[in-house]
């Protein structure tokens, strides 16, 4: 279902709209959250809690949703990633807050120039990712964002496990070479 239709439904008939939204995107949102919370101490219940938070947050922000800034699918993926990372941080970070006096200042964490360089590298890698073959992009997204094992990726994409592994390896090599400037292809 197209975003515009789904949005209209969510605004005019929230109950039916949420049924459609979850039908269409729950699988993907579960995938993103599971990718971050797949190992103990997180449980299936944590994952379900987090997924429910994602859909409720999306619903709460519906009035501010701007399709020009991204599709529903993309927004749900980003919210899912952020909420899952929140849980990981809360679980491992200890106290949520530190005073500014106690926290390292940016100068101690790395130079601003370094940050700018990292930002440029990140933009370059994103550009190189976009240039990959669609199937390779899908494999990498499934592998690194959804943390799906090769067997699962192979099932979803109708490939063999060895084919998935080979394509993933080649795509990574291609990225690495392009980032190093040794592959212009």
């Amino acid at each position: 279902m197209e975003d515009a239709v789904l949005l209209k439904k969510l605004r005019h008939d929230p109950d039916a709209g949420m049924e459609l939204l979850t039908e269409q995107y729950a699988g993907l949102v579960f995938g993103v959250v599971r990718g971050k919370l797949r190992t103990p101490p997180f449980s299936g219940e944590d994952i379900e809690d987090c997924v429910a938070d994602v859909f409720l947050e999306f619903y709460d922000g519906l009035a501010r949703f701007d399709p020009a800034k991204g599709s529903i699918r993309a927004w749900l993926c980003i919210i899912a990633r952020n909420r899952a990372v929140d849980r990981v941080r809360r679980r491992y970070a200890g106290p949520d807050m530190v005073s500014l006096e106690d926290s390292p200042l940016p100068a101690e964490k790395g130079s601003p120039e370094g940050e700018v360089i990292r930002r440029e590298e990140r933009d370059r890698m994103l550009e190189e990712l976009r240039r990959l073959d669609p199937a390779d992009r899908e494999i990498l997204f499934r592998k690194y964002t959804l943390a799906q094992p090769s067997r699962e990726i192979a099932e979803r994409m109708g490939l063999t496990v060895s084919n998935v592994d080979t394509r993933a390896h080649r795509a990574i090599e291609k990225l690495r070479k392009r980032m190093e400037g040794t592959d212009n292809g």
Binding site: K69, G70, S71, R73, A74, W75, C77, I78, L126, L129, R130, R137, E138, F141
Partner: peptide, 9 residues
């Protein structure tokens, strides 16, 4: 960002 993710997937 959502827009970048759309560009990718």
């Amino acid at each position: 960002s959502p827009a970048e993710l759309d560009g990718l997937i």
